[in-house]
Design a protein around this nucleic acid. Structure first.
Lengths: 240, 240
DNA sequence: TGCCCTCAACCTGTATGACATGTTTTCTTG
DNA sequence: CAAGAAAACATGTCATACAGGTTGAGGGCA
């Protein structure tokens, strides 16, 4: 009654905690819970699964770390809204342990953003178009302050992903933001002249205009050019 | 000394466990640990962080759930090799709680696999080419047994992702496999005639041949055609 | 000497009980 | 009937205990 061993592809490494995690996710599925819905209390789960509260807590904690559930003191756990959480930690872990290179991340980003930008050009609402354009404007306005440009740059790409109206794209792109934060400034510094830096910012404005114009081909072309330049900047900086 | 509040983008929801998680990941980073390297024992961490073993354990457990570290009874935790773990759970959670649709997953897969298949055509080793071809062959050989075809289908796509030699692609594609397992059979059933089913399997053989021939354009075209047919099959089956 | 076996030391897995603190519900009181 | 206090319930953290897995040191045997 506690765990299933056959159907799920998730490896059940032996142990009560893993079984409890399975049981809880299965509970969410079976009960058809959606974001915000409450889960049984730890004491409840302790009784249902016939294990100690220790085990139940570690299971809840694990799900909370992956952002599948929300926990806070005093109130019961609830099903979480879709969130990066775990995914970004996995990516960062891969990069810091040198199992993933920054170039590889950029290739994935390029692949995905060529699509999100085209979708955004087709599907963006007016509000989304305005938001994207606003980030491009803020980049130009703050071109003397790299850190600020970076944050608007990241926000720009995330906004495009949102405007694709596919949350999975949004999820993945946002997961990469952490890595971007660690390498962005390096790429910026290799753009020796102010003209180069401004040219890079104008690349964003080009993308924004194509999205607003509803031209997916043009938007994708500008995005490709942008990534090619960014990757070149990183390569020039000696980042593998 | 335990946690940092400023640099990391990860939201530090208050609590000793979150702080411990931060401390442990930071430890991995600072010590420059790679896959397989051992972490301090729970007792050690208890002393270092001046918190109870309960807290340390919940932190370790959380990292283990995200597959950032490996744990097993009797031996100390170690840094894990890059693995899907959390990512696939996030995706599955999104789908079961209806925050992500199957179509959206397929759009992302299509976007990524158009790239992995092209990269595979350019970069695959002979062994990888043989493996990919073998899965296509196994699909044909077992065409009467849908479940077996499905497993080889999934293995086929994962093998292509591996042959792209970019682990991030591999990571993402594998993360989607769980969702695929839940919907594959439905798409299969809508292919009414045996001819249609065989045609679908032949689509995989076409992809394999293009990869072996080292022709990225052709490979991408076949992949696109394959996905278009798959999505149509799902749509015909009434999957949103 | 060299190999195998045993056992001690260390480690994680699970259970239990206790108490602090935060949240919700209920009931009392004005 | 409303406001506020208290009880009931929830999670957060700690301490302790013991079972069972892992490893390496040391000793016995060939």
């Amino acid at each position: 009654m506690v765990a299933n061993r056959s159907m799920m592809p998730e490896e059940t490494n032996p142990g009560l905690v893993s079984a409890a995690i399975q049981a809880i996710t299965q509970y969410i599925r079976v009960e058809g819970l959606g974001p915000g819905d409450l889960l049984p209390s730890e004491a409840d789960m302790t009784r249902r699964l016939s294990v100690s509260r220790t085990v139940v807590r570690e299971a809840f904690r694990s799900l909370s770390a992956m952002r599948l559930i929300d926990m806070s003191a005093g109130r019961r756990a609830s099903v979480a809204k879709l969130d990066i959480g775990a995914m970004s930690m996995v990516i960062e872990h891969g990069v810091t342990t040198e199992q993933i290179s920054v170039h590889q991340v950029y290739d994935v980003r390029r692949t995905i953003e060529m699509r999100t930008v085209a979708l955004a050009a087709l599907r963006r609402s007016d509000a989304e178009a305005a938001e994207i354009q606003e980030y491009a404007r803020l980049m130009r306005e703050n071109y003397r302050a790299p850190e600020i440009v970076m944050e608007h740059d990241i926000a720009f790409h995330e906004a495009i992903a949102r405007a694709s109206h596919n949350p999975v794209f949004s999820l993945i792109i946002t997961a990469f933001s952490g890595v971007t934060r660690r390498t962005w400034v390096i790429g910026w510094r290799t753009r020796a002249s102010v003209e180069d830096q401004i040219k890079m910012i104008e690349g964003h404005a080009d993308i924004a205009r194509a999205i607003i114009a509803g031209n997916p081909q043009l938007a994708a072309e500008h995005m490709a050019a942008h990534f090619d330049k960014s990757v070149k900047a990183l390569t020039d900086a000696g980042i593998a």
